[in-house]
Design a protein around this nucleic acid. Sequence first.
DNA 1: CGCTTTTAGCTAGATTTTCTAGCTACCCGA
DNA 2: TCGGGTAGCTAGAAAATCTAGCTAAAAGCG
Lengths: 175, 175
Amino acid sequence: MEGSPSTGAAGPAGPPPSSEAARALREVLRIAGDTRAALARRLGIGATDAAAIDHLVSSPEPLGPVELGNRLGIRSASATTLVDRLVRAGHVARAPHPHDRRRLSLQVTEHAVGEVLEALRPMLVGVDRAVARLTPEQAEATAAFLREVADVMRDYVATAPDEPTQPRRTGADGG
Amino acid sequence: MEGSPSTGAAGPAGPPPSSEAARALREVLRIAGDTRAALARRLGIGATDAAAIDHLVSSPEPLGPVELGNRLGIRSASATTLVDRLVRAGHVARAPHPHDRRRLSLQVTEHAVGEVLEALRPMLVGVDRAVARLTPEQAEATAAFLREVADVMRDYVATAPDEPTQPRRTGADGG
DNA sequence: CGCTTTTAGCTAGATTTTCTAGCTACCCGA
DNA sequence: TCGGGTAGCTAGAAAATCTAGCTAAAAGCG
């Protein structure tokens, strides 16, 4: 995510952009971060809650609170509170895991899925319209490109430190 | 953001996917939301703080706390506290606006820009590598497609409500 | 110019969210 | 059966955001 700071903040000696495609992609990634907050506002919930529902509905296998917290980058205790919130709001239900009695299988309610789809519709419609403008060959090349980008981002997220690199300082010490 | 629940959760009778490209794009958008948190962890700051720096470095015109808060979807009071944090951490400096003495022009320090670029490098390298695999024609089509997607998302963010659609309930009332 | 309205930024106190620390129940391998 | 590791939860502390309201400066208008 996060755009191209060199052109925005550096002086006139900044390096030339590698390509228009890379520039456009970075812009997409930057705004994509903002769309999560926009979805949360449309749903009337917090950004983390919206991200949690997003993960739950798009994961091929059911998740429990701890695994959900890992994907969101929050602690297990925070994940428990998060799930409490989602259950209280009627977005999620706790179900037992079929094989492991320690675990829970979090189920997004049909109502919540419908709400999310409805809130996302304007964007999904616009995306489909953009896709429709591509020729089959262009669509195929774009899909392969995007899958590669997704792999890169997945790896970026996975290799991020589990904890902050410094103990989250509140005050200044060096003046 | 936010994946394609219909194809993931529906049974075998679900509608065919609109296209591989759309599916790949939705995956990219979903993961892009997570990369913001990953960047924040690498920088040792909060997700909002990382998003703020991102906006500041990629905005063509300088921003003040209030406008920054608008783009992040937070209140002006929270934006003041956010800027306090960033200034304390040495990531941002407050500078006077040249024409309007009410306003501030927030400047990202060179050190912070360097840190962000360093933290993003693995992803930017991977993106550039993916772009390099495209032919010039494919790159052009992809760039046009991504610009259109960015426009759609910008509009999606802009048309989101300023305030939550419901007063952020904490407890259940019907149960 | 003087007056009113609007805007940018800030402070104070309350609310919400996440964190650290630690606990129980359960799975798995020796 | 025993011991290590994992999933989920609770309690209290810390951090982030919010609401309400303030001052100063710009902008509009007689």
